[in-house]
Design a protein around this nucleic acid. Structure first.
Lengths: 270, 270
DNA sequence: AAGACTGTGGAATGTCGTTCCATATTGGAA
DNA sequence: TTCCAATATGGAACGACATTCCACAGTCTT
C-alpha cells in the first residue's frame, strides 16, 4: 500500500514541494482534527480541506480510515509513554504509577482516545498500541521482583485496569464539558449521585450504597487507589488467596447476605 | 421517542397483527444479525429485510442505531448475568469467579460484544450496562468483608479487568476463527509467540520474555488467574502496600534491584 | 361510521469512506 | 537535453449507510 521511505536520495525530497504531504503530516492533522472536533469530526472531507488536497492523495499514504485512526492512537500513546524515566530511577512502584498517570492524562487530554484504545484493544489486541503499553507497565512489574510465571497475569491486570479506568474517567470528564455548558463538576457528580440513590434497593444495593461516595471523590486519587490495589494483588503471597482460604485481614462484614442475592435477571435472549 | 407500553388494554394488542413489531423483536433480530454477520452486519437495511418491514417502522420503536446497539448489548449482558446463583450459595470468591466466567463466556459467544461493551463503557460509562455488571461483581465484594471505603475501588478494578481481559480473549478467539480458516489455535499461538520473539530486545524485553508462555497457556485459566490476582489485591491488608513497605512475600527475584527501592509516595497532581 | 392515534412501508436525502482516473511532479536513463 | 516510468496528487463519481419524511393502513374510541 505504502511506498518505501528512506532511500538515500530522499534527503532532497522534502523540499520538492512547498508542503509535501506525508504520512506523518496526515496523522498529525488527524490528531488535531480529533482533538478539535471530537470522535466524529475526523472525516476524509475535513481532512482534505485541512490539508488542502484531495482524497486520493491521502489514500496514497494511508490504507483506510481504520489505519489512520490506529496510527493516530499509536502516535498519541507513544508520546504519552515517552516521558523520561525519573532521573533517580524511582522504585518500580513509582514507575508504574507514573506510567499509569501518564496514560490517564493523555486520555483525559484527548477524549477520543478512550474509545479508540478500547476499540483497538478489542479488535486487534496485538497491534502496535497494546504491546507498547504492556511493556511500559510490565517492565517495572519485573523489577518489582514478581516471579516470572506471574508476569503475564500481572501485566494484563494492570493494562486492563489502567486503560479501563482512565477511559471511564475521561468519559465522565467529557460529560461534564459537553453535556451541559453551565454545569460544573460538583453539580454533575451530585446529579449522578442522586441517580444512583434512586436505583432499586433490591436490585442495586451495592451500587446504591456507593452513591454518597461519588460526591466527594477525587478522580486521580481514586484512579491511583485502583493501581495500588492491583499492586497489592501483584505483590501478595500467591498461596494466601488461591483456591480456598478466606480473608482474615479484616473483621467479618456486617450481615453479608450473599444468600439472598438476586440475579439482575433480564430476559433471555436467543 | 418511544411510546408507552403497559396500558391495561394492551393485552389484546399482541394479537392485532400476525407478527407485531416490537422493540423486543427488533433487539432480538439485531442480536441475531450481529451474531451471524459480525459487527458490521447490523445495518438498517439488513434489519428491515429480516423483519420484513421498512426503516420507518423500526425508527418508531428505536431512536437510532446507537440506542439499538446499546439495547442489544444490554440484553445479552443481562442474560449472561441472570444465571441462577448456585444453590448452596458458594463463597463470595466463588460467586465473583462465576460472574466473571459468565461474562467471559458471553463475550466469547458474541464476538461483537467486546467492542460494544468497550464503546459503551468509554462513551457513556453509567448507562444501563455498567451498573449491572458493577453490581453483580460488587455484591460479592461486599460479602467478602471488604471495608466500605474500598468497595468502589475494588468493584472498579474487577469490572475493568474482567471486561478488558475477556474482550481481548474474544478478539484472539475471533482471529483464530476468521483470519485463517485452516489454522487452528495452536498454530495461531505459535505464530503470535514467534512474533513476540522477534520484537526488539532493547525496546521490548518484558513482552519478549513472555513469548514462550504464550504457547501453552489456557485462556480461561489465565483469565481466572487475573481475577484471583485482583481478589488478592482486594483482600490484602491495605497497610501492607500503600505508601512504604515492599513485598517480602517471595524470595528475591534474580537480579531484582528492589533492595534499593524506596518509599513511593505518589506524585503531586496537577 | 368517523375521526384520531398508533403503527407501518418505502422513497428520498445527505454524508461518508472509498475507488478511479486524468494529470502533475520527479529521478534517472538515453 | 529529452523522454520514461515511478511516484504522487486533486477531485469527480460511486455505492452503502443512517436517518427523515410522508402517504397510508390498522385499530380504538365515541
Amino acid at each position: 500500500m505504502c511506498q518505501d521511505e528512506g532511500m538515500a536520495t530522499r534527503t532532497r525530497r522534502s523540499q520538492r514541494r512547498t508542503e509535501a504531504l506525508s504520512r506523518e503530516r496526515i496523522i498529525e492533522a488527524a490528531v488535531e482534527l480529533l482533538d478539535a472536533t471530537g470522535e466524529g469530526g475526523l472525516t476524509f472531507r475535513a481532512l482534505t480541506e485541512r490539508l488542502a488536497t484531495g482524497a486520493g492523495a491521502i489514500y496514497w499514504h494511508v490504507a483506510n480510515k481504520g489505519e489512520l485512526l490506529a496510527a493516530a492512537t499509536d502516535a498519541v500513546v507513544a508520546a504519552a509513554l515517552a516521558v523520561e524515566p525519573a532521573q533517580p530511577p524511582g522504585s518500580p512502584r513509582e514507575e508504574i504509577r507514573a506510567v499509569a498517570l501518564g496514560l490517564f492524562d493523555a486520555i483525559e487530554e484527548h477524549p477520543w482516545l478512550a474509545t479508540q484504545l478500547a476499540i483497538q484493544l478489542s479488535r486487534s489486541p496485538w497491534g502496535s498500541v497494546t504491546p507498547r503499553i504492556f511493556e511500559s507497565l510490565g517492565r517495572p512489574v519485573r523489577a518489582l521482583g514478581v516471579p516470572e510465571d506471574r508476569w503475564f497475569t500481572a501485566g494484563s491486570v494492570l493494562v486492563h485496569y489502567v486503560l479501563g479506568a482512565a477511559g471511564q474517567n475521561a468519559a465522565n470528564a467529557a460529560s461534564v464539558r459537553d453535556l451541559a455548558p453551565g454545569v460544573d463538576r460538583a453539580e454533575f457528580l451530585d446529579t449522578a449521585s442522586k441517580a444512583w440513590e434512586e436505583l432499586d434497593p433490591d436490585d442495586y444495593p451495592f451500587t446504591r450504597a456507593l452513591a454518597g461516595r461519588l460526591r466527594d471523590h477525587d478522580d486521580r486519587e481514586q484512579f491511583l487507589g485502583g493501581v495500588d490495589l492491583v499492586l497489592a494483588g501483584i505483590t501478595a503471597d500467591p498461596g494466601r488467596v488461591s483456591p480456598k482460604s478466606l480473608p482474615a485481614a479484616f473483621g467479618q462484614a456486617p450481615g453479608s447476605d450473599s444468600s439472598a442475592t438476586q440475579a439482575v435477571n433480564g430476559r433471555a435472549s436467543t
